[in-house]
């Protein structure tokens, strides 16, 4: 009952927040983006024990899929990028929104497919080797795309400008992120309650044992990463429309920014928990915006210090810290069998 009220309150706040604080509209949208990438990172990193540093690959790929789909629906992508904005290219509102809708779906599906292919190649790696291997994939992808002239090369690529009032468009972006975030949270909540969720936890805790118990480890790992990549790809596609112009190394495949931030969010909140990534993303975003505003010039130092403190003193994050302090909140009790059942 209390839980239902809590969820209703959160949903209500999600809906009214951009109207209450219109000046913070973009900030709130970015917060949802952090929640999405943190939650989806935790699907493999926290729940399955595969710490990918390459999930940013799906973000960048989602962006480019969105660009190619939206532009390709109306014009020839190669001619469009070759003109570098010199020609006259216009989208009717119908073309624009059709492109937007198709982009989100196409970005998600394409990233899932990429996850299966990359996963097939990298899931033989364990622990830090998997992290480094996936990081390599993301860096390599950024370099490859920046040399691929068809999608604009290192110059990046421009999305069509949104039709209509730009302030209204900000609301649309906010609600696209928020809807994806809420859908992802509900998806995770359901997934972790299934046998599949338990099986990926088993892979995290002892993969050799899971194999010896006959769990289809590779299949489950691929499916889990494909699910995670779907949502990152959708988030990337929304970002593409939000940013309008983006380039490969600093925006799309931004390994040292968002690629690391999503991991820090999860570490802050608590790996392998449902709420941890959400709380961590909020904590991180607030911390980041405060330091960027009040300690400009020292913001990276502050961020580094935060990472060091978390990694050294609070490895399990806020939720993990609570779980060790208050195990009974998490259902860890000794329970005698009820008398009637024992008979």
């Amino acid at each position: 009952m209390n839980k239902a009220l809590l969820y209703i309150a959160i949903i209500a706040f999600t809906i009214v927040a951009p109207f209450l604080f219109p000046a913070y509209n973009t900030q709130l949208a970015t917060l949802w983006l952090m929640i999405i990438v943190a939650l989806s990172w935790d699907m493999t990193g926290g729940q399955m024990g595969y710490n990918s540093l390459g999930n940013i690959f799906f973000y960048g790929t989602g962006m480019y899929v969105a660009a190619v789909v939206t532009i390709g629906l109306v014009y020839n992508v190669g001619e469009y990028t070759a003109a570098s904005g010199g020609g006259i290219y216009e989208w009717t509102p119908t073309q624009y929104y059709t492109g937007l809708a198709l982009s989100l779906i196409a970005a998600g599906l394409f990233c899932s497919l990429c996850a299966i292919i990359i996963g097939y190649l990298t899931f033989g790696l364990r622990g830090p080797y998997f992290a480094i291997g996936t990081l390599g994939v993301a860096i390599a992808a950024g370099e490859l795309v920046s040399n691929w002239d068809w999608v604009g090369g290192g110059q990046g690529i421009s999305m069509p400008s949104p039709p209509g009032d730009f302030e209204n468009f900000k609301f649309l972006i906010y609600f696209l992120y928020a809807a994806t975030g809420v859908a992802l949270f509900m998806f995770c909540k359901w997934l972790y309650s299934t046998r599949f969720g338990a099986a990926i936890n088993a892979i995290r805790d002892d993969e050799e044992k899971a194999e010896a118990m006959g769990i289809h480890t590779l299949r489950y790992k691929l499916v889990a990463w494909a699910m995670s990549a779907f949502f990152v790809g959708v988030a990337g596609a929304i970002s593409a429309f939000q940013l309008i112009h983006f380039e490969p190394l600093e925006t799309a495949y931004q390994t040292i920014n968002l690629g690391i931030f999503m991991v820090v969010c999860v570490l802050l909140g608590g790996k392998g928990t449902l709420w941890g990534p959400v709380i961590g993303a909020i904590m991180f975003h607030v911390f980041k915006e405060l330091t960027w505003n009040y300690f400009l010039g020292w913001q990276w130092v502050a961020l580094g210090a935060l990472i060091v403190v978390v990694v050294v003193y609070f490895q399990d994050g806020l939720m993990g810290w609570l779980a060790t302090k208050k195990p009974e909140w998490f259902g860890e009790t000794i329970e005698e069998k009820p008398v009637e059942a024992a008979q």
Binding site: L191, T194, R195, F196, G214, I215, Y220, V223
Partner: peptide, 10 residues
Amino acid sequence: HRKMSLMDAL
């Protein structure tokens, strides 16, 4: 799990 399809696992 060996007796389960992916749908059963979900």
